[in-house]
């Protein structure tokens, strides 16, 4: 099992947001997580990636056989956990190229490898830029600075492609994308998908799941996963909304 979350409780400033969440993800699987706004989907992503001030008050996150509750975010990242941010951050003054090279070299150092040779790095950049169809000019700019909403999301997938994570969490990467951009994002994911890695795709919309076909669909509500099923569940949600599940839950 690549990721095993057991009875996870997470509080922010003493307020409990996740209230006993269970989730297991195996290599080679794609899981979709759906659910109304404010139910804790991004909080789950933050807890898995080790964001400060997201206190795990109970439960365990086990990644690749190891409990990572207290592990620093950069170590988790170097062990192969990647988050495509719902709101990618702008970093003025740090060029995309420099940022990417620093990240790749951090990962390589962690794995006992030498720094990436310049030629190899540039070649990989070119290749991945093509994959996600981003303009060469963007990688010359500062990280996310002046990028459009769509460009920011594509840039997340670009970084994912560069870093080749074992577990990638996509937090509403599809929100605000037109259909072409959506296809690009899906192509990126499908291209990287293998029996050795897994994806957790957080989304509001069934339409992304037309392109990234999930093995499992989970519905989150009020800090818990309240229903799980196959990809059929997504269609059901598309048709009926969340209310029928919430009503069941509230009873």
């Amino acid at each position: 099992m690549l990721l095993n979350i057991k009875n996870l409780h997470v509080a922010i400033n003493g307020k409990e947001i996740l209230k006993g969440l269970n989730l297991s993800v195996n290599k080679g699987e794609v899981h979709a997580i759906m659910g109304p706004n404010g139910t804790g989907k991004s909080t789950l992503a933050a807890a898995i990636t080790g964001r400060e001030n997201y206190d795990i008050t109970k439960g365990e996150i086990i990644y690749d056989g190891e409990t990572i509750n207290d592990m620093a975010p950069d170590i988790r990242a170097n062990k192969g956990i990647f988050l495509s941010f719902q709101y990618p951050v702008e970093i003025p003054g740090v060029s995309m190229t420099n940022f990417m090279r620093t990240a790749i070299n951090a990962q390589r150092e962690f794995n006992g490898l030498e720094a990436i040779p310049a030629g190899e790095f540039l070649k990989k950049m070119e290749e991945m830029k093509k994959l996600v169809d981003i303009n060469t000019k963007l990688t010359k700019r500062s990280v996310n600075e002046g990028f459009s909403g769509g460009e920011k999301k594509k840039n997340e997938i670009f970084q994912m492609a560069m870093l080749e994570p074992k577990l990638a969490i996509l937090d509403e990467t599809d929100s605000g994308l037109d259909i072409d951009a959506l296809k690009v994002v899906a192509r990126g994911v499908n291209e990287l998908r293998s029996t050795d890695n897994a994806f957790v795709v957080i989304t509001h919309y069934q339409r992304l799941l037309d392109y990234i076909v999930p093995d499992f669909v989970h519905v989150m509500y009020d800090g818990r996963i309240v229903k799980s099923g196959g990809k059929g569940l997504a269609f059901e949600l598309e048709e009926k909304g969340y209310d029928w599940i919430i009503d069941q839950e509230d009873e």
């Binding site: 400060e52 975010p73 970093i91 620093t102 990240a103």
Partner: peptide, 9 residues
């Protein structure tokens, strides 16, 4: 956090 999430210490 964004940078650390990419593996940078």
């Amino acid at each position: 956090f964004y940078m650390m999430q990419r593996g940078i210490g």
